[in-house]
Amino acid sequence: MYALLTAIAFLMLFPLFWLIGTAFKSPTEDIFQTPPQLLPAQPTFANFVTVWQANPFAQYMFNSVIVAILTVSINLIFCALAAYPLARLSFPGRDGIFTAIVSTIMIPFQIVMIPLYIFTVQVGLRNTYLGIIFPSLASAFGIFLLRQAFLGVPKEMEEAARMDGCSELGIWWHIMLPAIRPALVTLAIFVFIGAWSDFLWPLIVTQDESLYTLPLGVAKLAGAGSFSLDWRLIAAGSVISIAPILAVFIVLQRYIVPTDTGSGVKG
């Protein structure tokens, strides 16, 4: 069983290995040889230097960082604010509202893309950071995930806070959010990956190259004249684009572990 799982894992990771190996290969090495050679015979950083100097990848990186940070921060706040009353408060129509929100997960983004674009243009958000992050300000999946996490918090913690005179907003901030930290980190990782790797919406809503994110920069690199035939440079640009995603996952994955809800008590 372990041998089978190892073979399946290698098949799934092979394109990534080939991409990284190609990015470090020198011009004299054949990247399409059979059988493929994953490890470069003469590793070089020249491809990365060429891509970085010949294209505004520093600006692309800066734009992606700004978009990802804003998207993750706002999405976590909005989803947590929406999920808390759906999980802990009682009011007429609560279950119907939650069902309607979750139902939107089944709607493909391509269906709402045109209305979103028209609205973005009408309110003057085209070619702006806010226009890029607008569709990701909140998500039905995030509301669902955090609601389920809120439901797992013992009611005794909430009742004790109310007896101490804590407001609903105070309970949400000081008690509930620390108690669901693993769910928040999980959602943050998903939102970050989606915002960082999003290509379609930034392509539609931005015409100013100074606002291009890394996926748009790599696509521009793939079609930029002489670069379009040099897969080493395209691979180097792709590695630059995916490296932050791997780094964020490696740093945060240790927090995706169920913790004692007693950590929600904040002194």
Rank of each mutant, 00 (worst) to 15 (best):
I242F: 08
L211A: 06
V121G: 09
G267T: 07
P35H: 01
L177N: 05
Q53D: 11
A58D: 04
V49Y: 11
E29P: 04
A236M: 11
I171C: 01
S167A: 04
L145H: 06
S64H: 08
V205M: 04
A80V: 00
F98R: 00
L203Q: 10
L184A: 04
G93K: 07
A100L: 11
V72A: 13
L39T: 05
R162L: 10
W231G: 13
N47K: 10
P15E: 14
M176Y: 02
S103T: 12
F134A: 13
N75C: 14
F14R: 06
G262K: 14
A222C: 05
P35F: 11
W172L: 15
G217L: 06
G124E: 15
V72W: 13
F45R: 01
G142N: 09
P92D: 14
Q53E: 02
G264R: 05
I118P: 00
R126T: 12
F98E: 04
A83E: 10
S197P: 02
F190L: 15
I180N: 09
V123N: 11
D260T: 02
T206I: 06
I189P: 00
T261D: 00
S197V: 13
K220W: 13
Y117E: 06
K266G: 00
G165Y: 07
M113G: 07
T50Q: 10
T261C: 02
I97D: 09
Y129G: 05
V67K: 04
A3K: 06
I180R: 09
S136H: 14
A188F: 04
L214N: 07
G237Y: 01
A179M: 08
T186M: 11
A188L: 04
V65H: 11
F62G: 08
L86Y: 10
L89D: 06
G96P: 01
T22I: 10
Y212N: 14
P85R: 05
V49T: 15
F10D: 00
S90C: 03
F91T: 05
F134T: 08
F199S: 09
I66S: 03
A195G: 12
P115Y: 10
P36T: 06
S64W: 11
S241M: 15
L221A: 05
F192W: 04
G194M: 02
K25D: 03
K155D: 13
D30S: 14
F78I: 15
A23V: 12
V65I: 15
T34P: 03
L5K: 01
F10M: 07
L5H: 07
Q42F: 13
C79A: 14
P36G: 01
V185M: 03
G93Q: 11
L177R: 12
